[in-house]
Nucleic acid binder design. Structure first.
Lengths: 138, 138
DNA sequence: CTTAAGTTAGGCTCATGACTAAAGAAGTAA
DNA sequence: TTACTTCTTTAGTCATGAGCCTAACTTAAG
């Protein structure tokens, strides 16, 4: 039940990408890694998963880099979680034993509540905007 | 982010204990293990943690066994989770990188929401009462 | 064609979860 | 006291995954 570093890193790097979204710029892995204090070698894998999930886009070669695939408003927290950690509250409870079914039902309710809460948050909420920068784009 | 078997087992065994609560009976490990389809050797550890958390009481020797320490109404889901899995949504996020603080804040909010939801459920909700049995005690 | 990027695959180490096993302690009854 | 029953405690195994690293490969710009 603990949140993984991977998830934390994903949130941070997406927040970072969100800051410059709309400027047509692409961010490099090294830049992102140092800005958010994430091991670059690990970040590679995370960015891969985020791309496979359709949250970010990438371009190779010189002038390559990463950018958000959509506006930060359009990316929910639950999408981020599912992109890097698979199912949210994995309710893999067996329907075994005398109370198995009932227990599974209750946890299912809890999971749904959790999911709907996550769906309320968007990447927008994570973005730290510097006081001076990019006000034109807001 | 997945729920552990240990947590599932804990819910089930507590539900089972809840069924006979108030009758002054003590349940044996073997009985509980077979009723809820839990490996007995593993259940031993779980019952230990539940006892250390003050959710159940135990008695050794002949006529020994386990029972709830309180009424099922008085045991919240969050207590169960904390007893076997430590902190609920472990928010061990570092305040590192450009967006670290903001990300940690948001997840803190999510965690609090989750906790309050858990506090709404009680062991009562988990108990499966057979149609014929123990109606006098309800 | 050279260089700067991203892409992919693999491997390593450590921590944890799930479970098994067994010796030890405490209560009960003969 | 002795034996038996039941919980108690601790140790150990095995598989899995997180986190991180290395290296070879592919694409694109100039």
């Amino acid at each position: 039940m603990k949140l993984s570093h991977k998830l934390e890193y994903a949130c941070r790097v997406l927040a970072q990408l969100g800051r410059t979204h709309g400027q047509g710029k692409l961010a490099h892995i090294e830049t992102l890694a140092s800005a958010e204090a994430i091991p670059a070698n690990y970040l590679v894998q995370i960015l891969n998963e985020l791309r496979n999930a359709g949250l970010i886009v990438s371009k190779r070669g010189k002038q390559g880099g990463y950018a958000l695939a959509r506006e930060p408003k359009r990316i929910t927290l639950i999408e981020i979680v599912e992109a890097v950690d698979g199912e949210l509250l994995e309710r893999n409870f067996e329907d075994a034993g005398h109370s198995g079914q009932r227990v599974a039902e209750i946890w299912s309710e809890v999971g749904e509540c959790f999911e709907s809460k996550m769906a309320e948050y968007h990447l927008d909420d994570f973005i730290v905007r510097d006081a001076d920068a990019e006000m034109y784009y807001i």
